[in-house]
Amino acid sequence: MKSLYILNNPANLEQCLSAMAPDDALLLIEDAVLLCHQHTLHNSYILEEDLIARGFATKQSHWQAVDYPQFVQLTLQYDKTVTWL
């Protein structure tokens, strides 16, 4: 069972990572895209629209940029999603 974790608050990264299993993936959206320079061991994605809205270029990020259609696809690739609020 693989889960997609969705994080929107950069302050909650450590707590979110501590709950994740090795096969789980993390998607940064909204203000959490400010974490784009961090490294994690997980499959890691970042919502491109929110990244650009905050003045970052996609290539500046270590995370794989996705758009909304790819966001939808990710929720289907994983067995369930957990939005970490």
Binding site: E30, Y68, V72
Partner: peptide, 13 residues
Amino acid sequence: SQGQYSALEFTKA
């Protein structure tokens, strides 16, 4: 917050 807008865009997609 941005959540309602994010949800709306996700819905459209």
